[in-house]
């Protein structure tokens, strides 16, 4: 096993071990922090597919995170008020079922990613960054001006949605659910990276013309990756809204896109566990430094600067060495 594999196993052990300890020590807040880290990691795994494997610097991924969040918020708010979502041409009721909410979040964010990707992936470089940012901001301002679902104030949900066989109100059980999803997505991502699609996507990042000459279309490869990436981030958004029982336009803001990107860079862009380690560090800094100073982002900025200047592979790169070709 490579050093990176050991590091990945250790990361998962810490991520599962801390809330387990907190559960035994009756520290539910720590479990909530760990759940937050897991959900952020999931959002990061989504963006990392586009950013790390596809080389797509998207500053609009908060749109998918927020769409996932609003999918949960809208469905659950109708379930708690016993009002249908729509009545014409047919009745659609709200729901408290997490499985249904996740499916809707995945579908809605995937469709949004498809629409944004179809247009933005025709550009590259700084234009791609600006177009994804512009789409993200359009959705952000739409949510702000949408009074039916709280507008700028957001939407509070007074219940925790249901998952069969799990008491989702128990922090440890909700953590377990989120952790299991993260593990499943990581396994899927590992398989995807090693698949012909993942290899072609990686090849397209390196040499687009060469990929065209062997009969593959980089645009389609990137579009599929962008849609999968948006769907995973959307799922994370639904879980995040469920964790907080609150959804607001903040989830859609460009700062959220930036934060996800920052912790991926801290962990290691393109590395399977980069977003996981990055999210853990981010949540730790947010908690520890946020308690000391309101301006804790200054320290985060300094850390980011240090990583970018001295450890281009992020924390994983610094601890496990530069990425080798897959074997």
């Amino acid at each position: 096993m490579s050093r990176e594999t050991y590091l990945n196993i250790a990361t998962l052990a810490v991520l599962a071990g801390v809330p387990l300890w907190a559960w035994m020590a009756d520290e539910p807040f720590t479990i909530t922090l760990a759940t937050r880290a897991v959900i952020f990691a999931l959002a990061g795994v989504g963006l990392n597919l586009a950013l790390g494997l596809g080389g797509l610097v998207s500053l609009g991924h908060a749109a998918f995170f927020g769409i996932g969040g609003y999918a949960m918020g809208i469905l659950a708010s109708h379930a708690q008020s016993y009002t249908p979502l729509i009545e014409v041409p047919f009745v659609i009721e709200g729901t408290k079922s997490m499985i249904v909410i996740w499916l809707v979040a995945i579908l809605a964010s995937a469709l949004a990613a498809l629409a944004i990707g179809v247009l933005s992936l025709r550009t590259s470089g700084v234009y791609f960054i600006m177009i994804t940012l512009a789409f993200g901001q359009m959705i952000y301002y739409f949510a702000i001006s949408w009074p039916a679902y709280g507008g700028e104030d957001g939407l509070s949900i007074y219940l925790r949605n249901d998952f069969p066989g799990v008491n989702t109100l128990m922090p440890m059980q909700f953590f377990g659910l989120c952790f299991a999803i993260l593990c499943l997505v990581l396994v899927g991502m590992n398989l995807l990276q090693k698949s012909a699609f993942g290899l072609a996507l990686s090849a397209a990042r390196q040499n687009e013309t060469r990929v065209l000459s062997v009969g593959m279309e980089p645009y389609k490869l990137r579009l599929v990756a962008f849609v999968i990436s948006g769907a995973i981030t959307g799922l994370a958004g639904a879980l995040f809204a469920d964790l907080n029982r609150f959804v607001s336009p903040t989830m859609l803001s460009w700062q959220m896109s930036g934060e996800i990107m920052i912790f991926i860079i801290i962990g290691g862009v393109g590395r399977l566990f980069g977003p996981v380690i990055g999210a853990m560090i981010f949540i730790l800094l947010e908690h520890v430094l946020g308690g000391l100073s309101e301006f804790w982002h200054v320290y985060l900025g300094a850390l980011l600067l240090g990583i970018v200047l001295f450890a281009k592979g992020g924390v994983i790169g610094a601890l496990a060495g530069r990425e080798k070709a897959h074997d």
Binding site: A196, L199, A200, S202, A203, Q206, N207, R210, V214, G215, M216, E323, A325, H326, D327
Partner: peptide, 18 residues
């Protein structure tokens, strides 16, 4: 030549396979 330098030999071959 211009192989995909970040992929292994096997991956270079299967990435393009039809």
């Amino acid at each position: 030549r211009r192989c995909f330098a970040n992929l292994t030999v096997y991956e270079n071959l299967i990435a393009a396979a039809r």
